[in-house]
Design a protein around this nucleic acid. Sequence first.
RNA 1: GGAGACGUGGCCGAGAGGCUGAAGGCGCUCCCCUGCUAAGGGAGUAUAGGGUUUGUAGCUCUAUCGAGGGUUCGAAUCCCUCCGUCUCCGCCA
Length: 429
Amino acid sequence: MLDAKLLRNDMGAVVEKLARRGFRFDAETFNQLEQQRKDLQVKTEQLQAQRNQSAKAIGKAKAQGEDVQPLLDAVADLGEQLEQAKQAFDQVQHEMDMILASTPNLPHDTTPIGASEDENVEVARWGEPRQFDFEVKDHVALSEARGWYDNEAATKVTSARFSVLKGSMARLQRALTQFMLDTHGFEHGYEEVYVPYIVNQDSLRGTGQLPKFAADLYKIEKHSEHDTSDRDLYLIPTAEVPITNLMRNEIIDEDALPLMYVAHTPCFRSEAGSYGKDVKGLIRQHQFEKVEMVQFVHPDESYAALETLTQHAANILQKLGLPYRMMALCSGDIGFSSAKTYDLEVWLPGQNAYREISSCSNFEDFQSRRMMARFKRGQGKPQLLHTLNGSGLAVGRTLVAVLENYQNADGSITVPEVLRSYMDGIEQI
RNA sequence: GGAGACGUGGCCGAGAGGCUGAAGGCGCUCCCCUGCUAAGGGAGUAUAGGGUUUGUAGCUCUAUCGAGGGUUCGAAUCCCUCCGUCUCCGCCA
């Protein structure tokens, strides 16, 4: 959520920055609402003050045994006036909240300006794609040949875009997960956390998935019909949601910063609107495994933190010996809540292309403001934290990359060295 | 899943329709005192939003006692719904 004060004081800059990401902000409507809000809020609060005063006066008079009736008569219609003012105020406030909740973050000045992913900027490249002296297969051909990947079974059990993995491939995925968690935990200094895979709406609002992207989420209906509360729960689309919301409505001491968490979770995405893309194989699934890093940092540190966080993700690829490139996403391609995002794209021989395997973002205070996630120094005023997160990495896609990059002519797969200790020392599967 | 008890500030804990944004204690911050430590004295110590303002200063208003509704001139206090915690029973990994 953007800072409402910024909208009041510097609307021009907001509109310009949002335009960079192709978002048209209706300043005129907002300004009109803001004017109404101001009037209605002042009016409502004046009436409330008046009510409070007279209630006190009545209390005092009663205590002294005076006749209270004249005082009661004097405030007879105050309640109704207040009710009306309050309703009008709530209505305007609600409209403004809806606008703010649906407005994306401002791109940072270092985010390249562009309309679509075609204008993302490559900022680094690591590793040389391997030269094969045989015809490369993609991960689907490789894994099906070995009986490791059973798409039909998944379709039978659930539906399209789910997977059943078997044998060495299932084990390799688990090895990758362990390797990533251990690397981030032991080498990069993250605290490992285990979190729920089902979250409530407040959490999804906090990180920005709601209200705008409900269609991409799997929703679990509330249990009973006479439950009048706002109780619908959702499967997590990423561990970002439960981890980042750990700090919702919290004020932590500045000395505790930065907080760095890593977790492994499955992720569930209904991916509305992705029909026809990557229909084959593990690239785009409704359920996939991911190791996620989240950082809560001092506002002054967040851009340095974005660089190191991205490096932590890249380090996994380097240890696995997987060639990749690092892209700075342009203003038209960054996510709703992000101010700046780097994507890491891994080389997939089967597709002869680099494909996204990690996305690392700085949200600045956009999520913190929604969540009221703050820190303070000593007795000082609480300030909003900056939040960051990044995949470290998308495990399913890493599995694809390992299969394709480490394939041998006979269809076997060489196990990358760093994974062997997680595979009972096996060198080849 | 059943039955009961309970949710108050950083923590403990009073309050049971009006002068309570909330006693008291602990903790914390600052000042004084003390040769150091300990002890003692004093002051302060929630969050958000609004108005005023060049201002994150000051002044002032509003809201918040698990959440949301209701009753009332007035609600931490009464009523309803929900959420959560604890104890006992059942069930289960």
